[in-house]
């Protein structure tokens, strides 16, 4: 069978590959959302007045940005499985219980990207003009109203370029989750390479698919930035 036939003809390998690509995007999105939640908590800790909280958030970001992500994935996968094994042992189960790989992957991406997203959010918040917050307070706005009307729309605009970078980073990081066996694009390519003995064809196809995903999302982020900048164009 030639390459074309293997992928689109009788081999029909395009199906598992595109399913893998879909999983890649899904897990990246899950990791991104988790990272946004952890990241905003970290940003609040770093912006807040509590010195201990600030210090803890600082240690978290420094550590997570200084160690390989593969180690974090190992920690969560084997650590999580160990914890599950303990719980399972309590109920009489024996042996190794693997924790769901999708959950591990999403959590790992969230934990790692939170360190980067925290910095992005912190910078975006700091970029908001102090005067606007003071004006809001002078008008008698409550805290949540100020957050919704003044802070959130502007912080989002300032944060978008940084968030776009983090998203690209996460997309590329999803490939690492293949090491714990989640069948995303990378793993799907490995499976195809293994069973057809055509590694070059499969890794190249995955390579191209990654390129498509990252360039489409790059375009989308550029569009979103343009939309967010619209109200400020005529100043």
């Amino acid at each position: 069978m030639d390459s074309y036939d293997l992928l689109f003809g009788g081999g029909r390998w395009w199906i598992p590959l595109s399913e893998g690509a879909l999983t890649t995007v899904t897990i990246a999105a899950s990791g991104f959302v988790l990272g946004a939640i952890f990241g905003s908590a970290l940003a609040l800790m770093r912006l807040g007045g509590n010195a201990v909280a600030r210090r803890l958030a600082d240690i978290y970001t420094t550590t997570l940005r200084g160690i390989p992500d593969l180690l974090v994935i190992y920690l969560l996968y084997f650590g999580g499985s160990g914890a599950l094994g303990l719980i399972g042992g309590f109920f009489g189960a024996t042996g190794f219980i693997g924790i769901p790989t999708f959950a591990t992957g999403a959590l790992a991406l969230g934990v790692v990207s939170a360190a980067y997203q925290a910095e992005v959010f912190r910078g975006a918040f700091k970029a908001i003009a102090r005067g606007e917050l003071e004006a809001g307070r002078a008008c008698g706005m409550s805290g949540p109203a100020m957050f919704r009307r003044i802070v959130a729309p502007q912080a989002l605009r300032f944060a978008l370029p940084g968030l776009g970078n983090v998203w690209q980073l996460i997309l590329k990081e999803t490939a690492l989750i293949s090491v714990v066996g989640l069948v995303e694009l990378m793993r799907a390519a490995q499976v195809g390479a293994g069973s057809t003995r055509q590694p070059f064809l499969f890794y190249l196809s995955a390579f191209v698919l990654y390129l498509v995903i990252t360039s489409i999302s790059g375009r989308l982020f550029a569009r979103a930035e343009a939309i967010c900048a619209r109200p400020y164009r005529r100043a």
Partner: peptide, 17 residues
């Protein structure tokens, strides 16, 4: 635009073909 892992696999396993 692509993960380092796939670049590595493309060179090590892919070129082995």
């Amino acid at each position: 635009g692509t993960p380092l892992l796939i670049q590595l696999f493309l060179i090590y396993y892919g070129l082995g073909q």
